[in-house]
């Protein structure tokens, strides 16, 4: 009986955590930053292009997806080609939170705290099925796993897979760049010829 109550209080805690972030107007996008006093169209655009081309992720992994995330930084896949290899250990200096793995109800607190500690503008990628929807843990008997990190914090890009291949994560980062700057391979980035009728 006591155990049951503990689970219930954990659920309430998760709900409270979810309210913390979703309540402050940042829902849905990473751009819920406190707006500037003045908007200059050109400066804004340059800002976005720069932000898109330098997404520094946080050194933060929760489960097996984190291994694939590490592979993304190494030879063969090398996310540094797009300037995103600067894994900052401090949330204050990072732009991108890659939720790589299963979010437990106990871990939820830490995830939300880390998200709140990041400086605006900030973005979130949910990597892998666990982070998207609870994956294999989304069953009736589940008592410990948050079914989807988007219940806690706003997510910008979902990368499905169990775990996703490193190319998948790179594609996720490219998608995020597209979301920030409005076009695939935003300006200073080299444009690659479209091949084989894809796109």
């Amino acid at each position: 009986m006591a155990e049951k109550e503990q689970f219930i209080s954990l659920d309430a805690h998760v709900a409270e955590l979810a309210g913390r972030v979703h309540g402050d107007g940042g829902a849905g996008t990473g751009m819920g930053a406190p707006g500037p006093l003045m908007r200059l169209e050109l400066a804004d655009q340059i800002m976005r292009l720069c932000q898109a081309n330098s997404l520094w992720p946080m050194t933060f992994g929760l489960a097996c997806c984190a291994i694939e995330m590490m592979a993304v930084g190494m030879a063969r896949f090398d996310v540094s080609r797009y300037g995103a290899e600067v894994f900052r250990p401090s949330p204050r200096q990072s732009d991108l939170m890659i939720v790589a793995g299963t979010v437990n109800k106990k871990m939820a607190e830490a995830v939300v705290t880390l998200y709140e500690q990041m400086a605006y503008p900030k973005w979130v990628i949910a990597m892998g099925n666990c982070a998207i929807s609870g994956g294999p843990f989304a069953v009736e008997e589940n008592y410990a796993v948050v079914e989807g990190v988007d219940k806690l914090i706003p997510v910008d890009v979902y990368v499905p897979g169990c775990p996703p291949r490193p190319e998948g994560l790179i594609e996720g980062i490219l998608k995020l760049q597209e979301k920030i700057a409005g076009s695939r391979h935003p300006f200073p980035q080299n444009r690659h010829p479209k091949r084989g009728g894809l796109a």
Partner: peptide, 15 residues
């Protein structure tokens, strides 16, 4: 790359 990073750093919120 570093030029872009520099501009990005300037546009980040100062916590």
């Amino acid at each position: 790359q570093t030029l872009v990073d520099g501009i990005k750093l300037m546009t980040k919120e100062l916590v």
